[in-house]
Design a protein around this nucleic acid. Sequence first.
RNA 1: GGCCCGUUCGUCUAGUGGUUAGGACAUCUGGUUUUCAUCCAGGCAACAGGAGUUCGAUUCUCCUACGGGCUACCA
Length: 468
Amino acid sequence: MSPYRSRFCPSPTGLLHLGNLRTALLNVLLAIKSGGTFILRIEDTDVDRSKTEFSEAVCDDLQWMGLHWQEGPRIGGPEDSYYQSERNSIYQDFYDKLLEENQIYPCFTSEEELKIIRRNQMAAGEPPRYNGIWANASKEEIEEELEKGNKPVYRFRLPKDKTIIFKDLVKGEQSFHTSDLDDFIVRKKDLSPTFMFANAIDDSLMGVNVVLRGDDHLSNTPRQIALLKALNLEIPEFIHVALFTGDDGAPLSKRNGSLSVKELKEIGYFPQAVINYLSRVGHTISDNELRNIHELSSVFNIGNISTSPSKIDHTQLNFWQKSVIESISIEELSSWLESSLEDLPKDVNKDSFVGLIRDNITFPADAVRYLKNLFINPLDSEKEVEDLIKQTGSHFFKIAEKIIEDNWGDWSKTMKLIGEETGAKGKNLFMPIRASITGQLSGPELDQVIEVMGLERVLRRLQEASSL
RNA sequence: GGCCCGUUCGUCUAGUGGUUAGGACAUCUGGUUUUCAUCCAGGCAACAGGAGUUCGAUUCUCCUACGGGCUACCA
């Protein structure tokens, strides 16, 4: 595989979410795998919606996820700027050239007029398309509008009756007729470039040789190819990946399960869990190995990219999260949980506690729950626990307390004695003990729990239970 | 409306002109735990529908349905 120069080019109008992230990841994997370069470019051409805070967040989020770029914001590269808002002089040269060659033309039809035209076309059962009234306007007509102070947009003169064919590396050959497309706008009234223009030009100027993007861009591709051809610019290869949808099949949004990187971070997801999940959505990896980004890139394969859309599934994401928790060291786990463990009593060994709950947690919040229930919250803070303890009666706990104190260090003997003394066995024996000591109805093996808690604390718990 | 993309277990997916249609996650059951969780083992579960091509189609073709995209002075 020859080195690919891939790119990710978000517009800073919001936070990065699982869908964008997947596209970014695939581009990174492609670059690493081919020994190429991953470029980050900020497409902030929409002045009203673009915000600096978002472009900063995008960079932070990608870095946190371990998706590093070799050219782009913060680190620079061959280009003067990787923010499109700072590249206007470059675009100006192309506009000049295109205008001179009569490949673009000014159009004075206002947005309101366009809306009306479109509505009428729809009503008449015609395809809503720019009617091309300004395509062949005379110099005089144009002068007249300019004199009136009217500002034009510029449209690209799309070649007539041509078929544009390109090969999508995943979907195969795609063909579009220019008669189904219209003269699209390349420059807005405020002189800023449109996506269709700046995106295609920058890809080419930056030497991007593979454009891996969402399926939603598929029908933009012939337009961009036509534009690049008109400018004699290099045309990259294309991969359009099927969309990643919400659990209802609709485009990914907050209400159908998408999470922003910010939220993922707050919930406590490991970047590694996220990339292992994401690299298996719409892309096949035949085994269930947990991998780092380099290992993922080596099993990444364009031919394994699927053509059909996939739905987000948090249980699968969480599976990878648990898989990371299983695989890392106690030290790493402890530092992951650091801020969640602030309330852990000083006399409790942090690593022992973390080791104890490791198999029973998915997120830091789960660790907090154990911490609170084991060491802080009173026994009546969870209803089921309180009910069970009251139902069992204080007699049981008084007996248990004495036996545990006398036999500390031999848990199986302890439980046997409590069973004999109280007549309880099985569930009726273990659940009240578990409930009173741990404040929960489920959790790790009891002998391990009491070891971490210590005799004093366990006895205090039993006393609390008998006086409930 | 036009153009385009897509449709295999609940989910992510593998796969082939003849297969017991495979795996993973979830779920269910059993085992371990004198309890629950964890862990381990096993089970359930799918080719959107209709035509055609063919000795034979889940696989190839067409149509329909459904989902999605583009058709923006958003990207």
